[in-house]
């Protein structure tokens, strides 16, 4: 029986990132996962069985990857959970700090040698996807190596197939979640280039 992954229609750049992480993970790791896009008031949830579910996106990616993570992966995840998360939470996504993008590039380079689609890479990609969704690729322009990594990762066939779930990546107006159902959701952000 497939696992069920519920993702909301996003109302913020942070939610776009969180959706990207779990949807890409479900596509990349070939897991038997059924993705369901809920309304804007729902939350990310991976139902594992009748008694167990996960709601935190990074934990979901790690669970789906079924792999033992390297220290480089944990370093990537640590940067994502602090620096990138806080940046995305600000709402109006800013450009990446040069020191952070350089550090990410170095770690992604090391991770890429053994497992280019590791959980650490998927988690960082999801976070960057949110930044690119709101600021375009200029968000990564501080670091050419990181931009190249992002392009290569997003061009991978399994990643591309995951990112086809458009409803999960187009930001809808927050009020739409509480307003009358007759009110159409308003797209405020163009999809990032794929």
């Amino acid at each position: 029986m497939p696992l069920e992954l519920l993702v909301p229609k996003p109302t913020s750049v942070l939610q776009v990132s969180q959706n990207a992480k779990v949807i890409v993970a479900s596509a990349v790791y070939g897991s038997d996962v059924k993705v369901v896009v809920g309304d804007a008031s729902s939350s990310i949830l991976l139902k594992i069985d009748s008694d167990h579910s996960l709601f935190e996106p990074n934990a979901i990616v790690e669970y789906l990857s079924k792999a033992k993570l390297t220290s480089h992966d944990w370093d990537l995840i640590s940067i994502e959970e602090t620096k990138l998360y806080n940046l995305l939470k600000q709402g109006e996504a800013k450009k990446l700090d040069q020191n952070i993008s350089q550090l990410l590039s170095e770690l992604l380079d090391k991770v890429g040698l053994k497992a280019p689609l590791s959980a650490g890479a998927v988690i960082v990609f999801g976070a960057l996807y949110g930044l690119v969704a709101t600021n375009g690729k200029g968000a990564l322009s501080q670091d050419l190596q990181l931009t190249l990594w992002y392009q290569k990762f997003s061009g991978e066939s399994r990643v591309k197939s995951g990112l086809k779930e458009t409803d999960a990546f187009v930001i809808v107006a927050a009020a739409a979640s509480t307003a009358s159902k007759a009110t159409p959701a308003v797209s405020t952000t163009p999809l990032p280039e794929r």
């Binding site: 594992i48 709601f55 990074n58 790690e62 669970y63 959970e81």
Partner: peptide, 12 residues
């Protein structure tokens, strides 16, 4: 496996 995943979740 599930408990390990939940551990990661709560640490985050």
């Amino acid at each position: 496996e599930i408990q390990s995943a939940e551990l990661n979740q709560w640490l985050t």
